[in-house]
Design a protein around this nucleic acid. Structure first.
Lengths: 242, 242
DNA sequence: CTGCTTTACTGGTATATACCAGTTTGACAA
DNA sequence: TTGTCAAACTGGTATATACCAGTAAAGCAG
């Protein structure tokens, strides 16, 4: 190809490449979940090198417009899931209501003990028993979050014997009569590292959103503490205040 | 120096450099707002090249642990500001209550008209008058967000004549008797580009958090629409639900 | 001491190249 | 037709190098 981009705007080359790709996404010639041309081909098309092409791709990734799948290529990001933490309790119902297909996988269920960090979050004492549940959740087949859930076995006896590949919220309500009342939610953007990046199949350091949620029942007793690691391009958060 | 890092864990070199720097931050030999050694010096210290050193730095930046100031160097990030969108109305008061020093600069005040995008957000009609206000806000001298505020001149006559380098929320209450009642908040992680990156003095593409807030008064009338662009490492969001 | 200019230093952008580690595809054998 | 294996291709990591564009410090002139 060797079609060099004009340097009119004097913008950096990698931003001009970014702009060209953004146009191809916006105008619809590249639709959600479509694979982009490979880095080597893009570099050739725009008359530059892989390093610069990767800068342009990293830019679009940071904007949440494309994502990568390990050694498979770059893909156009699907729309963000709208998530209303003050209203939504069920991931699955929320995903379905937006016309998409949810999936949940249980990675691990481990009875363990409260450590210092969990003690300050849950109000329980260090050494108290807790059930640690790890799940991965998908939208349209794409893993978008992993979560660590810590369940209070005093409030939820034999909780570890249930199937977790379904709505936890429904399980708590139907099997234990728990009506979640209060929640404390905290969230901030950060990078996905270690087990979280692995479980989501993304490069270590991919941008993410970290969300924690501590739920209590109607009597104010601690029920569950939830720690979620989302892909940063997968959700949009909405809060209504009255 | 030329002290090459052992490759025991077989982790990539740039991650091992990252780990070394993270330790220096955690143990306190690098404190908030301290400048890190320059990229060239780091590359030399760890026996590698600038490109790899930059990978390590970009990693820590994505995690929100360091930030850069254009051509001045890399610095250790200060703690995140805790922001409770359901409770907090005043940026300044919130910053002060966390023992830090706020500052606000008015960048621009422009009377203009509602466009299609604003119409869907505010409920007003295309062509209706609106006052567009641009501000930059700092914590301890570091610009952490820029905002576009759209004020309803029908509800707030002569609003453009006031000084905006203070709490807008107090201005509305004291001068117009507005008691904000309902808010619709939306937020998602994205990259800072164009005027926003410029105003914050960061590289185009720096990770950010985009927050919009639409406020109504007690009678349900539209008062103001606010669009905020935050540095991604500057805040932690907390929501309480009862 | 003050104010200006020069210089050194910083990160920002870019090229060229190489090898590695998974994924996908296509050829071939059973 | 099915299963296996090799080849081609993908992004991931890394070195070496160069020049540009701002920042900050040193030095000099007044």
């Amino acid at each position: 190809m060797q079609e060099r981009l004009a340097g009119e705007g004097s913008a950096p080359l990698y931003m001009r490449v970014r702009d060209q790709l953004a146009i191809r996404i916006e105008e619809g010639s590249l639709t959600p979940n479509t694979r982009l041309p490979s880095e080597r081909i893009l570099a050739d098309e725009y008359g530059t090198t892989r390093v610069t092409a990767r800068l342009a791709l990293a830019q679009l990734e940071a904007e949440g417009r494309i994502f990568r799948s390990n050694r498979r290529g770059w893909f156009v990001s699907p729309p963000r899931l709208i998530y209303k933490p003050t209203q939504d309790y069920s991931f699955s119902e929320n995903v379905i209501s937006q016309g998409r297909i949810p999936a949940t996988e249980t990675l691990d269920v481990t009875p363990t003990e409260i450590n210092a960090w969990l003690a300050t979050r849950t109000g329980l004492a260090v050494g108290d028993p807790i059930v640690w549940l790890r799940r991965r959740r998908q939208i349209d087949g794409r893993p978008v979050l992993v979560e660590n859930i810590y369940l209070n076995p005093k409030r939820l006896p034999a909780i570890e014997t249930y199937d977790f590949n379904r709505s936890l919220w429904k399980l708590l309500r139907e099997q234990y009569g728990v009506e979640l009342q209060g929640k404390h939610i905290e969230m901030y953007p950060t990078a996905l590292v270690g087990p979280q990046a692995n479980a989501l199949g993304v490069t270590i350091g991919t941008a993410g959103l970290y969300v924690t949620r501590c739920s209590h029942d109607a009597e104010g007793g601690f029920v569950e503490f939830d720690e979620e690691f989302w892909l940063h391009d997968a959700l949009s958060i909405q809060v209504e205040v009255y």
